[in-house]
Design a protein around this nucleic acid. Structure first.
Length: 594
RNA sequence: GGGGGUGUAGCUCAGUUGGUUAGAGCACGUGCCUGUCACGCACGGGGCCGAGGGUUCGAGUCCCUUCACUCCCGCCA
């Protein structure tokens, strides 16, 4: 109890009948009957209906107060008559008969209504975020976020993990995303970088002997935004453990995710033990390394079919001869779909920048035939073979894409999602997790043709560490893994390479000399030379976990003060110009742009 | 860096093949109304039709340029 309130706006019920009380909050809604006024008062906790009529001398005055004004109300708790009970709110059995009121905070005309479920332009929402956050749905999302983080923190502590903070001003590293740089005043011409993740620090914590670490860690990456990716900054549940193998890490996180997702959602979790899919399988079957396993559609490779003499699909055959692949998606029992359905998919594929999707439906009268624009190119024998390879049946439709591996993976990944949406195949009432494992250690940069780390340079390669074969680096796999839920990449992680000689060797393959490594990763490489334990970890994105649990499609809906797509904070006006003095102090000058 | 969508009253939106004075709901203002909970009724104020240029007798509508917001590709070890 304070001088502002004796109760909160969700608290009053019949047990308070007759009590004199004080409430403070925002005027959510008024219903003015002329001689009788209902006023819904709102605070963080709930709503209370207050009522006043013309017999009170302040009636005319209170009638005029605009919505969203902050007021203090003194009055008496009154039982509502049976017909006027409102079961939608916790205080619906009573109302407060207003005695006096005081305006605590007045309001200008609102740029956006608070009491409404309408959607609003992003620009207004972000500029007036403090108003947007008063709205019920997003207010609840932010509270949910707080509860989830708090729950995770206590679960991690129960599991014996210690929470540590790591530096925000650190050094730029050559791998990974674009860094945010911070000029150093005391070291003119030099820059700090904001951490893309506390990757090196958490490994150093392991070398320091702390055994189990976690942190709700801010991460900064200067890359372009997406619906599920905030520009600039986001939070990870950063975790690292000593003396563990991949399965030990999986064990901890499967338990944690099951607990978190059961506690904060009613949706069904499809697997208690998350399936493991190798990276190469995932790229073949789903065209992506973050497959949505709620989607039953699977990609199959049909390239071999186009070497057959009894297949007359000459355009594809020519491309296959030149090294292209053909892969397909099968939709079950779509023989009766109208022509417009198939045209729509084909047009959509063309809009995505592909050459479209060829398709035919498998039919059977006295023999098997392909119905549709390209059906006539396939003999009965070849259709039998396709049915075998793609697990297709009579009545199913085969959608074909031909091209370079990267291209068809991309388009079939998108087509898989598009077809599932069109056919309504995805059950939105469940969560489907999986691990993606066995990432390649290296990959070839298509532009520079050079070999680079495909994921994380600190990952441990698979195989007999003492006798690793470095002659074919592109075939090396790493103990590197991702966890995916409903097609959202929640995190990546790895068992780390804690052996300095091996680290130098791997960096050499990626084009870094020993002295280069010593300079760029000095903290890490030096530490590994003084008795480093085997260790590994994971770092799930907090924002994305909350997004899934709040059933939101955009990360701004679970972020309190997000930036817009151009990485601007419209409310605080960031980024902004700075004074000449500030620049001078930092030894910086701004190049004029013409 | 590239592609798509959107931009009309404070907010959400409608606005026909180019044709009089650009509309509705909510919000705001005035009046009526004592049981509403999306209260109701009547009246009213409020518009550089994102900005600039062009075509035309005439542009919210057609063309060009540009800006803002957003979604996607690239990028994100």
């Amino acid at each position: 109890m304070t001088s502002y309130r004796t109760h909160k706006c969700n608290e009053l019920n019949l047990t308070h009948k007759g009590n004199k009380i004080i409430l403070s909050g925002w005027i959510n809604k008024k219903r003015d009957h002329g001689n009788l006024l209902f006023l819904d008062l709102r605070d963080n906790y709930g709503l209370t209906q207050c009522v006043i009529d013309k017999s009170n001398s302040i009636f005319k005055e209170i009638e005029k107060i605009p919505l969203e004004t902050v007021v203090k109300i003194e009055g008496k708790v009154v039982e509502r008559s049976k017909e006027t009970i409102n079961l939608n709110i916790s205080t619906g059995e009573i109302e407060v008969s207003i005695n006096t009121f005081e305006i605590l905070g007045s309001t200008k005309e609102l740029p956006m209504p608070i009491f409404s479920d309408q959607e609003y332009a992003e620009e207004i929402r972000l500029k007036y975020r403090f108003l947007d956050l008063r709205r019920k749905k997003i207010h609840q999302n932010i509270i949910l976020r707080s509860k989830i983080i708090s729950f995770i923190r206590s679960e991690m502590e129960k599991l014996g993990f210690l929470e540590f903070q790591t530096p925000i001003l650190t050094s730029s590293s050559p791998e990974g995303a674009r860094d945010f740089l911070v000029p150093s005043r005391l070291n003119p011409g030099k820059f700090y970088a904001l951490p893309q993740a506390p990757q090196q620090f958490k490994q150093l914590i392991m070398v320091s002997g702390f055994d189990k670490y976690f942190q709700i860690a801010p991460c900064f990456r200067d890359e372009d935004a997406r619906a599920d990716r905030s520009p600039g900054e986001f939070y990870q549940l950063d975790v690292e453990m000593s003396f563990v193998e991949q399965e030990d890490v999986f064990d901890v996180f499967e338990k944690l995710f099951l607990k978190v997702f059961t506690k904060f959602s009613n949706k069904k979790i499809l697997q208690n033990k998350f399936p493991k899919i190798t990276y190469s399988d995932s790229m073949l079957k789903y065209g992506t390394d973050k497959p949505d396993l709620r989607n039953p559609l699977v990609i199959s490779d049909l390239t071999e079919i186009f070497h057959r003499g009894d297949v007359k699909f000459d355009i594809f055959k020519k491309l296959v001869k030149e090294g292209s692949l053909v892969r397909c998606l099968i939709t079950k029992n779509t023989k009766d779909k109208p022509r417009s359905f198939f045209d729509k998919i084909d047009n959509w594929a063309k809009e995505q920048g592909s050459s479209g999707l060829a398709y035919f439906t498998i039919e059977k009268s006295d023999k098997l035939t392909g119905k549709g624009p390209v059906g006539k190119f396939f003999s009965e024998d070849s259709i039998v073979e396709i049915m075998k390879l793609a697990k297709a049946e009579v009545g199913d439709t085969v959608f074909l894409s031909c091209g370079k591996k990267n291209e068809i993976q991309k388009i079939l990944n998108m087509a898989r999602v598009k077809l599932a949406e069109e056919l309504d195949l995805i059950d939105n009432n469940c969560f489907s997790f999986c691990w993606i494992v066995d990432y390649p250690m290296f990959e070839k940069d298509e532009e520079t043709k050079k070999i680079k780390f495909s994921h994380n340079p600190f990952s441990m390669p698979q195989g007999d560490i003492k006798n690793l074969d470095f002659t074919n680096p592109l075939s090396m796999k790493a103990y590197q893994y991702d966890i995916v839920c409903n097609g959202v990449e929640l995190s990546s992680g790895a068992i780390r390479n804690h052996i300095p000689e091996l680290m130098y060797k791997l960096f050499e393959i990626a084009g870094y000399s020993k002295s280069n490594v010593d300079e760029k990763f000095s903290g890490m490489i030096n530490a590994l030379s003084y008795g480093a334990p085997p260790h590994g970890g994971l770092a799930p994105g907090i924002d994305r976990i909350v997004m899934l649990l709040a059933n939101e499609k955009n990360i701004r809906e679970v972020t309190m003060f997000p930036m817009n797509q151009n990485a601007q904070d419209l409310m605080m006006n960031a980024p902004s110009n700075v004074s000449e003095e500030q620049l001078k102090e930092l030894n910086l000058s701004i190049k004029k742009k013409n």
